[in-house]
Design a protein around this nucleic acid. Structure first.
Ligand code: NAD
Ligand code: NAD
Lengths: 216, 216
DNA sequence: TATTGTTTGTGAATGTGAGTACAAATATCA
DNA sequence: TGATATTTGTACTCACATTCACAAACAATA
């Protein structure tokens, strides 16, 4: 079920499995370090970073050390080069084009969101099935017909953001897989079945709200 | 564990430490069972439910058993009464009013979203700081001045959805805590510092997208 | 009633992740 | 140079979470 990734540590041919939880935190580090880079901060210690992110310092050190020794003892981590390293690790160096499926309320908000650029993402095309929306302009982009999803293959777009009603999500996912998409961010409250080679991350906003009263 | 009354459940909750991961999955079960209830499904086995949700059957059984013995051996779980039990456990029985802070692109999408009702949530009021937005209508609601957040106390609204820019998130959170809010769903890419008694769940959509290329 | 097949609930085993503690490395300063 | 302060990287330990395995409970049927 879990995708396991092994990386070569050194010439001893020792392979370490990197925890999924570590991978999940890496974008956190990337975002925080990117902000520090903008503020012309040269280095940061695990203690300072942990304070910002509400984590324990050893957690950060251990996470980063899975991928090598980025820090300098007595100093901390060099911000700029660590940002580059994390980008490389997460395969976020260079621009990643993503397709947005569903130009509804959430879809249009996503389309206009500038915050994806921190991670090198850009929404490169928008699809919908409603005749009224096809051909309409959203920002600089024109909404395309969802029947033409297979054009993603030619355009080498391998990432998709799914913002369609839950009932349509599974069939859309299948069309995306058919079009060569390798990663899907699913924003609908549905559980997608896809081939193992395709990675799906589902965000269910209402469900996240659902846990709050329990803790109150 | 015996047949569960409401009081018995509360006692059990005190004596067993219930894993956070279990709590995180409970809304999943609630959503799936609610759909089955609509389809007039009487009972469902852990195996069937696990198939739908891509989980292992013992996981579901163990999760539910933390709160009592809801199922019948040889049969499965009675859909209707289990839905009621989970609602009670998550304190989602009855309507929960939530305040929405930030009437921007994401905020207006959230305001119009009907999907919160599955969990008994309703967006009861919307706040913004921009003079142009204050007084404007969004659906049936009028955008209020964020300076008046303290009125939430009188209205006994203890839940908030935060959809403001990251720079404004911390100060908004503090105003919300001041206004008696006990749970915050933070949609901005920021790490909020709040008193321990307040529960925060942060959803960072861009960050979730950030892990996909690694697995591709 | 006895038998067969199904499913729950749960203790035990296994697996995964987090926290602790400390040696090694580096900077600073007397 | 030597002493002190800081911080990393990591082995070890502990805590939490998942999965397994099976007895107990129930339905259906002969
Ligand atoms: N709006 C929110 O705040 C919010 C919050 C949480 C989750 N969601 C989820 O996000 C998804 C989208 O929500 P929304 O509010 O934007 O809904 P919406 O109804 O406003 O938009 C859905 C869009 O998808 C299009 N669509 C339907 N079937 C399609 C298909 N097969 N291919 C391509 N496009 C198709 C529709 O034409 C419509 O434009 C839903 O699954 C919803 O549950 C939304
Ligand atoms: N749009 C998206 O798809 C998207 C995706 C992921 C995350 N987010 C995050 O969600 C948040 C909102 O995004 P958006 O796209 O709606 O931004 P937006 O700029 O469209 O809207 C933000 C709104 O918040 C209001 N605001 C600012 N300061 C405030 C304050 N102190 N009190 C009350 N209101 C205040 C602004 O007036 C504005 O109306 C941001 O943090 C953003 O990073 C948005």
């Amino acid at each position: 079920m879990n995708v396991s990734t092994n990386i070569k540590i050194d010439e001893d041919m020792k392979y370490h499995k990197i925890p999924d939880e570590t991978i999940r935190r890496m974008p956190m580090y990337l975002r925080a370090l990117s902000l520090l880079e903008q503020d012309a901060c040269q280095t940061i210690s695990s203690r300072q970073l942990a304070q910002q992110l509400h984590l324990n310092p050893p957690q950060i050190r251990k996470d980063l050390s899975y991928f090598g020794a980025f820090g300098k003892r007595g100093i901390g981590y060099p911000v700029q080069s660590t940002v580059q390293q994390i980008r490389k690790i997460l395969k976020l160096d260079g621009t990643q084009s993503a397709a947005l499926i569903g130009a509804g309320r959430l879809g249009t908000a996503i389309a206009a969101y500038p915050g994806f650029s921190v991670f090198g993402f850009e929404v490169a095309s928008i699809f919908d099935i409603a005749p009224k929306k096809i051909g309409k302009k959203i920002g600089a982009m024109t909404v395309e017909d969802a029947a033409d999803l297979d054009t993603l293959k030619k355009r080498k777009i391998r990432l998709a953001i799914l913002a369609v009603p839950a009932e349509a999500a599974q069939s859309c996912a299948e069309a995306l897989v058919q079009a060569g998409v390798k990663g899907i961010l699913n924003l609908s409250p549905s559980c997608l079945a896809v081939p193992r080679r395709v990675k799906v991350v589902t965000i269910d906003i209402a469900m996240a709200l659902g846990v709050l009263p329990y803790y109150m």
